[in-house]
C-alpha cells in the first residue's frame, strides 16, 4: 500500500464488479465502458461489459481466442463503423464523452487512439511519409514541422539511427520488427492519448517483441495503454492491470499481481493453470 496509485486503482476494479459507484471515478483520460453489448449477425459477441481503464498504465486484455477481446478493442476506436453487421449497445466513455453519442465525430475519436495492429502494416509509401501521414491528413502543412515530427517519433521508437540515410525508401523494405516500430511511430505521430495494441507482437521475433514491450513500458508514463494479448507471460511482464475475458464476458479483472497470485474465480484459476487456452 505504499503505492497510492495502485491502491486507488484496485479500488476501482472492485467497484465495477459491484457495478455501483462508478461515477465517483475521476473520468478524465480514462476509458469507461458501461453495459456494452456487441452483436455480430445476431451472435452476442460481447455481453454486459463494464470496465474502467486506469490512466497512464498498461491494461492487458487476455483470454482464449474467440473470446471477443479484439472485438472489444476495436469497439474503442469505432473500427466497427464500416461493418454494418455489427450492432453496438451501451456506452464507451472516453474523456467524459460517449464515443457512440449522436454528435461525435469518428475522426476525433480515432485521433485519440493510436492503434497497433497484429501484423505491421506499413502504408505503400516511404518511411518518412508513413510517419508524416497522420499529421498531414490532420492538416499539418509546414515542411519544417513535419520533418521535426517525423524525426522525433522515429527517434522515440529507436528507428531513426537504423533508417537515417534511407527515410525516403519504401517502408516495405524494412524488417518486420522495424515495420512494427514504424507503425508505432506512425500511431504516435497523431498525438493520441491512448494506445491500443491488438496482439501487436504476435508476428514478431523475440528480440523485436522485447523492443516493443520496452517501448510500451516507456510509453505508459504519458499514455494510457490497452493491449490485447494471448501470451500470459507477456501480460505478466508488462501489464499493470489484467482483464480476463471468456466467451464474451469479463470474468475477472484486477492488478497484475493479484490476478496472477490470487485469482478469485475458478475459471481464472483453470485458465492460468493451462486447463484451456
Amino acid at each position: 500500500m505504499n503505492n497510492p496509485g495502485l491502491a486507488f486503482v484496485s479500488d476501482v476494479f472492485e467497484d465495477y464488479h459491484n457495478k455501483t459507484i462508478l461515477m465517483k471515478l475521476p473520468s478524465y483520460h480514462t476509458i469507461s465502458i458501461r453495459n456494452l453489448n456487441v452483436y455480430i449477425e445476431n451472435q452476442h459477441i460481447l455481453q454486459d461489459i463494464n470496465l474502467t481503464i486506469p490512466e497512464k498504465s498498461i491494461t492487458c486484455i487476455i483470454g482464449p481466442s474467440g473470446c471477443g477481446k479484439s472485438t472489444l478493442l476495436r469497439t474503442l476506436n469505432r473500427m466497427h463503423d464500416d461493418t454494418p453487421e455489427v450492432k453496438i449497445n451501451g456506452q464507451v466513455i472516453v474523456d467524459d464523452e460517449d464515443i457512440y453519442g449522436v454528435n461525435v465525430n469518428v475522426i476525433d475519436v480515432r485521433k485519440k487512439m493510436g492503434l497497433l495492429a497484429q501484423r505491421p502494416c506499413p502504408l505503400p509509401m516511404s518511411i518518412f511519409d508513413n510517419v508524416a501521414y497522420g499529421p498531414r491528413i490532420h492538416g499539418l502543412k509546414k515542411r519544417k514541422a513535419i520533418n521535426q515530427t517525423v524525426i522525433q517519433y522515429l527517434q522515440y521508437v529507436g528507428l531513426w539511427d537504423e533508417v537515417r540515410g534511407r527515410v525516403r525508401n519504401s517502408a516495405s523494405k524494412l524488417s518486420i520488427g522495424q515495420q512494427q516500430r514504424l507503425c508505432l511511430a506512425r500511431g504516435l505521430a497523431i498525438e493520441p492519448e491512448y494506445i491500443l495494441g491488438d496482439e501487436a507482437t504476435s508476428a514478431l521475433d523475440p528480440i523485436s517483441t522485447k523492443k516493443i514491450e520496452e517501448m510500451f513500458v516507456k510509453l505508459k508514463e504519458q499514455y494510457t495503454i490497452i493491449l490485447v494479448t494471448h501470451t500470459l507471460r507477456q501480460a505478466k511482464r508488462i501489464a499493470d492491470y489484467i482483464v480476463f475475458m471468456y466467451l464474451g464476458k469479463i470474468i475477472e479483472s484486477g492488478s497484475t499481481e493479484e490476478f496472477f497470485n490470487n485469482p478469485k474465480k475458478q475459471l481464472t484459476r483453470d485458465y492460468l493453470s493451462g486447463s484451456f487456452s
Binding site: 480515432r110 501484423r119 502494416c121 505503400p124 501521414y133 497522420g134 497523431i190
Partner: peptide, 27 residues
C-alpha cells in the same frame, strides 16, 4: 487490397476519401 492497409489509414483518423486517395489508389 488487404483490409489491414485501409484499416491502418482509417485508424489514424483519415477519412474514407483520404484513404482512397492516398492509400487505395496508390496501392
Amino acid at each position: 487490397l488487404p483490409k489491414e492497409i485501409t484499416d491502418a489509414s482509417l485508424s489514424l483518423g483519415a477519412t474514407k476519401w483520404q484513404t482512397v486517395k492516398k492509400v487505395m489508389l496508390r496501392k
